[in-house]
Design a protein around this nucleic acid. Structure first.
Lengths: 367, 367
DNA sequence: CGGAGTTCCTAAACCGGTTTAGATGCTCTC
DNA sequence: GAGAGCATCTAAACCGGTTTAGGAACTCCG
């Protein structure tokens, strides 16, 4: 190791016997360099092992060659969400190919993210950002428009936006779940959703409502939870304590479904004998639960790829290529089954089914 | 909005009636500027709303002001791991305070990461990296030493390394789990671990072995899995089919423990009546399982903070401040209980307990 | 054969900061 | 009161690329 200093474009220029500019032209495959000169330059660069410094590049092209992802969620909930890792992997696969880096920021939930974005812009760290976990009336698109920072909204389409939206439509997945339950004979299909103030919380609930309606079913109880296990358990408890508890519950994510399933089981209910349950996400554990969870699966990796592609297009002010995302698919497993037939036909204030079950349990324990 | 161009240090200099250099000095609180001048400059900068461009700063200080985290795992496994989100949140809290950004890369598992690091270095994207999911004889520390890129190893201490290690020791947590089970009367405490080729897989298994030994127990079956739900289920099946199945299983993470618990339950075993189970991680869902999972909890956020602090020190060639990380703690819940007392004293080739249980189940179903 | 048009390339400006060398004015000292 | 020493500040070089203006050589064409 003779020289400690990093290789620069000047070293290449000198070695190839040309000027800095020529090297730059050759590297970026721009006209103005003879084919054989170009080849010679590239060969020399290769030989001495030079890669352009993205620092220097970033300064001269007035771009950061990086995009940002700001995640504002309590880390606990984040950890249980299979979405982000796959999504980020999808982003990466496109970004790295185009020489872009991904800047990640995980901020406290209550920070409302906007200071983070402002800083990213002020410091010129990123050329664009992905917006996730959108709220209804989210201030961020407006803020970013004001700051002039390109953005892509990740999630269900909103419609009237300044920024493009890239997202797998929730509706088909939820609809499929409801239809599946209807086909199994269920008619009291409750819903445990995320915060209605959040776009995907909202859209999934709408999908459930629409599907019920399409099946000609009357409205059923719906509880607004917050995607956490705790809230899923609480919501489930409330539903089971209703005078007329549901025979099936559609959850807006797997985590709440798992917590709900556990809670129901702890009360002696058999899944799916007494209660059918569906999740959303198809997390790794879903298939290995007892019973295996019927859930909705989306191709999150592809989703990430699409979002990244769109953001880069936006940054380069290229026209949008419309990428068709595969729709959400229902994965039927063992947590859904035929509606219980032994149900008493007239609704009462007590819950006979649970009573009965409790009795059976008691017998078992006494044995 | 009169001018569309970004504010630069020149604008501040002009507005304050000083030179570029003076502004730079003032901003970085270096000597050579009179106190009142410094204040005036800062006030002007504040007023016109200028923040130094990190692009330009990065080029002139020959630093990227960013650090990298390369994650090489199949996204599916990643999504189920509560570690990274909290860890990243911890990193962020230190990095952002110091004006550093976090560059994230999620690469395919088989890419073995090294090309990613090489690229990060070649392009000058980062000033240092965190190494996670270390293998025994991992080539990365050596590679990075060669490339001259500072690194901090995240995980159990290895000892002979070029780079500092920041990690919560696994041993106390696993030991506590084993001791807890021993106290409950268990003597056949099996172990389902991660790949032994991985450092934390290895260290957790050693901890289990050591703890067994300390309790004066003979060696028990141990299965090398891969931290995935699938592998956890398979390992559990193998253990339960042993001539003399364990009465307790210690798992190296929650995901495998959950899958194992479900599998055991699907075979009619009662947890913890017939089999006690412990996990590792304390994921959000753990407390909401049926039964709630006894597991090991570590302060991952603090861990992230420590790792970031250490890496920045390394980059600035400052001496290491030794940060004491809180040790892993056992969280006792309901998946562990007294060893079954009804067990026949002589081992046979069949498994009477399960037989008995199956019978009970059958009775129930026939009813 | 002289001027217009191309092609290929170089020198120099530029991106927006940091940092160094040196100018200026002031105090201190003998 | 002249030179040393210091604090304060400026001008200019520098980081490592990209990009523009322009020069040299060569072709084309009337």
């Amino acid at each position: 190791m003779l020289s400690v200093t990093r290789l620069t474009i000047n070293d290449v220029a000198r070695a190839a016997g040309v000027s800095k500019g020529a090297v730059s032209f050759a590297l970026n495959s721009r006209p103005g360099v003879a084919p054989d000169t170009r080849e010679r330059i590239l060969k020399v660069a290769q030989e001495i092992g030079w890669t352009p410094s993205s620092r220097a590049r970033a300064l001269s092209v007035s771009r950061s060659l990086a995009v940002g992802l700001v995640i504002a969620r309590p880390p606990a909930t984040l950890g249980a969400d299979p979405f982000f890792p796959s999504f980020i992997a999808g982003l990466e696969s496109v970004l790295s190919e185009r020489g872009y880096a991904l800047l990640l920021q995980v901020v406290a939930d209550d920070d409302r993210e906007t200071p983070s974005y402002r800083r990213l812009v002020d410091e010129g760290r990123v050329d664009g950002v992905f917006l996730t976990d959108m709220f209804m009336d989210d201030p961020r698109p407006g803020l970013l428009a004001e700051l002039g920072l390109p953005a892509v909204i990740v999630g269900p389409a909103l419609g009237d936006d300044v920024w493009p939206t890239v997202g797998v439509d929730d509706a088909p997945g939820i609809s499929a779940a409801v239809e599946h339950l209807v086909a199994l004979g269920h008619s009291r299909i409750a819903y445990v959703g995320g915060p209605c103030g959040m776009v995907h919380g909202h859209s999934r609930q709408r999908a459930w409502l629409t599907a019920l309606d399409a099946a000609g079913l009357p409205s059923a109880p719906s509880i607004e939870a917050d995607f956490s296990a705790e809230s899923g358990a609480t919501a489930t408890r409330q539903l089971l304590e209703l005078a007329e508890p549901p025979t099936a519950i559609v959850y807006a994510n797997d985590l709440m479904a798992m917590a709900g399933m556990s809670l129901a089981q702890s009360r002696g209910l058999d899944i799916p004998g007494d209660l059918s349950i569906t999740g959303y996400d198809d997390s790794e554990i879903a298939a290995h639960l007892q019973p295996a969870l019927t859930t909705v699966c989306t191709d999150v990796l592809e989703w990430g790829r699409a979002a990244a592609t769109r953001l880069l297009e936006l940054i380069d002010t290229q026209p949008a290529t419309d990428i068709a995302l595969p729709t959400a698919k229902l994965v039927v497993r063992d947590s859904t089954g035929p509606v219980p037939t032994t149900r008493p036909p007239t609704p009462t204030t007590t819950t006979p089914r649970r009573r009965q079950r409790t009795t059976r349990l008691r017998q078992m324990e006494m044995k």
